[in-house]
Amino acid sequence: MKRHIELNTHISGKFNQELENLTNSVLTMGGEVEQQLINTIAAIRENNASIAERVVLNDLKINSMEVQIDDECMRIIAKRNPTAGDLRLIMTVSRATTDIERIGDEICRIAKLVTKDSLPPSELVLSGMLMIAEKVVIMMRGTFDAFARQDERSAVAVYEQDDNIDKNQKELLKQTAIEMKKDPSEMQRWFDVLWAIRSLERIGDRCKNLCEYILFLTYGKDVRHSSMKKTVKKLMK
């Protein structure tokens, strides 16, 4: 049974405020990470090292957000003794921030392609990377929207976008292998490119995790490590 978690119906007005701030903080962090990826795409497209450096520096801000949100979760658990939906919300927020922070790290790794002057020497691979990155931005945006609205159907739809990203990634890896053979002298650069492609794919996976947390939040069922098809069939008849 789906249960929408109402944040503003507790007797304690302060508790309402705390939960609302906590949810908003995750969305702020998510927005920040989304912007990081958008800036990284711009840096790659324009081969602009200063934008990329800014992305790498800005990751410190995201790390600090993770610590702050985790501290706040701990504080609320200690002081408010949350139960049921409130507890699920706090657990979701705590798990989600870990994933969002890791997304930040992956974005940093991609941005370093520009700062280390390691962009792929092949136009084909570069455009393939940018295409996946654009899809990842859309997936990320959808994830945070679904979280903000506690919308499990959107979460499932976003979750399914990852298949397409995985498919694109596999094709791109094949293409990259072909290009690598053509130009084996640039092996170090190609390794960096491979890591960056993998990072893009991992961001998709992290978004999938976030979608699973949304289902945990709204249905109270932990759907990690289980088939999404079966979950959907079972929960959303």
Binding site: N21, S25, T28, M29, K61, S64, M65, Q68, I69, E72
Partner: peptide, 8 residues
Amino acid sequence: MLKLFETE
């Protein structure tokens, strides 16, 4: 650094 939560 951005402060997400204010303390009173």
